[in-house]
């Protein structure tokens, strides 16, 4: 499915569980980490949805379930000090960049112990120390910020790479064009990762974008790739190539990762813009199940490994919810605090 491009890992068919040699490049610890992260993302959101439906939290929850391989595969190829910008559908990016689920859950619950002390919520989780420059409520807006982080790295010569995660909904925005064009003209160490999950609310990506987003790479004079975003190994290999290239000072890459959100746009969804058959087709290509099948076939990890990780995650989740529920609400005296550095 992947199209010809300088960084694409060609020849991989969608739905194929074989890793084309990529699995062999990953250590057992990396495989365990990848499974841990993908499962954390899924269990975190499943748990958050339950809490939302039980009226324990409010606002908006944008689910990443079904897209786990993209954030996980890309972040698996990053170094710890590298930077990312994220989106309103950002839980996956946060967790893949190393965020703690208890502090995330507490933020979703609006409590003082949350990442933002309850001031940000689901759409604004950031952890600057981990290199997560923030989820973002404005579609496309993380792209120019990522370009700025990459400019900073180039000027400071700190050797870091910045990933801009964004969706197909950001393809039509001016911020996309300005951010990618400037990064290309300045040859910045950035990788632009479009998670094409097919829909911006109910609007299909093909309606919103005059041509496929990955086609724009040549227009900016940068490499681009269109990949199966539900194939962890293809995501990892493609991201690794692009990140290594950026780190060598050879400039940005555009990756379009084709994936699907199993859930609605938010907890609230019109459910009138896609068929049950379409959803079922994509659920059958679940990125976590495909990863597990490939790893099982390779006999690199066994059932005990997966069960141990699942057990760890359940304990983490249980703790995260208990921590969030037990945490204090912010007091109103902090409303005008942290607007400025005092």
């Amino acid at each position: 499915m992947a199209e010809q491009s300088p960084v694409s890992t060609n020849g991989r068919a969608g739905g194929d569980d074989a890793s084309n040699g990529v699995l062999e490049q990953l250590s057992d610890d990396q495989l365990r980490w990848i499974y841990l992260i993908m499962r954390r993302i899924r269990r975190f959101e499943e748990t958050a949805e339950e809490a939302f439906r039980a009226a324990k939290m409010r606002g908006a929850l944008h689910f990443y379930i079904g897209e786990e391989a993209t954030a996980t595969g890309v972040c698996a190829a990053l170094d710890d000090g590298d930077f990312i910008t994220s989106t309103h559908r950002g839980h996956g990016h946060c967790i893949a960049k190393g965020a703690r689920m208890d502090k995330m859950m507490a933020e979703l619950f609006g409590r003082t112990t949350g990442y933002c002390g309850g001031k940000g919520g689901s759409m604004h989780i950031a952890d600057i120390e981990l290199g997560n420059l923030g989820a973002n409520g404005i579609v496309g807006a993380g792209i120019p910020i990522a370009t700025g982080a990459a400019l900073g790295s180039k000027l400071r010569k700190d050797g870091k790479v910045t990933i801009a995660f964004f969706g197909d909904g950001a393809g039509p925005t001016g911020a996309f064009h300005e951010g990618v064009n400037v990064a290309a003209t300045m040859n910045l160490p950035a990788v632009f990762v479009c998670e094409n999950n097919q829909y911006g609310m109910a609007t299909h990506a093909d309606f919103a974008n005059a041509a496929a987003i990955h086609n724009r790479g040549p227009a900016y004079g940068i490499p681009s790739a269109s990949i199966d975003g539900n194939d962890l190994f293809e995501v990892y290999a493609t991201a690794k190539k692009a990140i290594d290239r950026a780190r060598r000072g050879e400039g940005p890459t555009l990756i379009e990762s084709r994936t699907y959100r199993h859930k609605g746009h938010t907890v609230l969804d019109q459910k009138n813009y896609r068929t049950k058959e379409e959803i079922a087709e994509w659920v059958a290509r679940d990125p976590i199940e495909r990863f597990v099948r490939a790893v099982n076939e390779s006999e690199r990890l066994d059932e005990d490994d997966f069960q141990a990780i699942d057990g760890q995650i359940e304990r983490e989740i249980e703790h995260a919810v208990a921590f969030a529920e037990a945490s204090p609400w912010p007091t109103v005296d902090v409303i005008e605090r942290d607007v400025y550095v005092e």
Partner: peptide, 9 residues
């Protein structure tokens, strides 16, 4: 955005 990203980092 260049200013923001560079300032944050």
């Amino acid at each position: 955005g260049l200013g923001i990203g560079a300032a944050l980092t």
